[in-house]
Amino acid sequence: MAAPDSGVTRPGLSVGPTSEFSLFFRVKDGQAPPLRAALLSLQDTPGYRPGDYGMAIQTIHEARFVLFDDDTRLAFITSFDGPWDAYMEDFFTSGPTLALFDAIFGHVEGYDGLPDVAAVRAFVLDAEQTAAAYARNYGGTVKEIRKSQRVNRAFQQVLDHAQAAEILEHPALRPLLDEAAD
């Protein structure tokens, strides 16, 4: 039976809607080469391939796996929209995260594998270290940023129209005209 939840929430530091989420693990003896190989093949999966921008978890801004201390340690560092601690159980019952976990974290200490969700939760909480400092250079959730990019692409198309200058003269479009010059 699962132990009573400690109730301790450690959502990390946040900037606007986004919170930092950093995990630090110890690589099992002799597991550095297969872990490197697993990370290399991860880099070849949809969302992680160079040029891809569609990770399976759509609420994270970026993700990095860093092997350090002569490949004895592994860091997983990301930024999550919302308080990640509220979503702990969700991560472990949704497909993409599970597959990722099994492929990578099988090579680090303390991971006993699924499907023991309570154990995996404890494993993650043990590995989490709250940042001492955290800053972001833009606001907004992944959803908002994607929307901004779509809107800007549309705006650039409008600017490429032969009559763009004339159309943007309308007083209601003044805020767009202000952004049209460069």
Binding site: I57, T59, Y87, D90, T93, S94, P96, T97
Partner: peptide
């Protein structure tokens, strides 16, 4: 369902 981080059934 496509978010990869939410299981509505929870």
């Amino acid at each position: 369902d496509q978010e990869g981080s939410v299981d509505v059934r929870l």
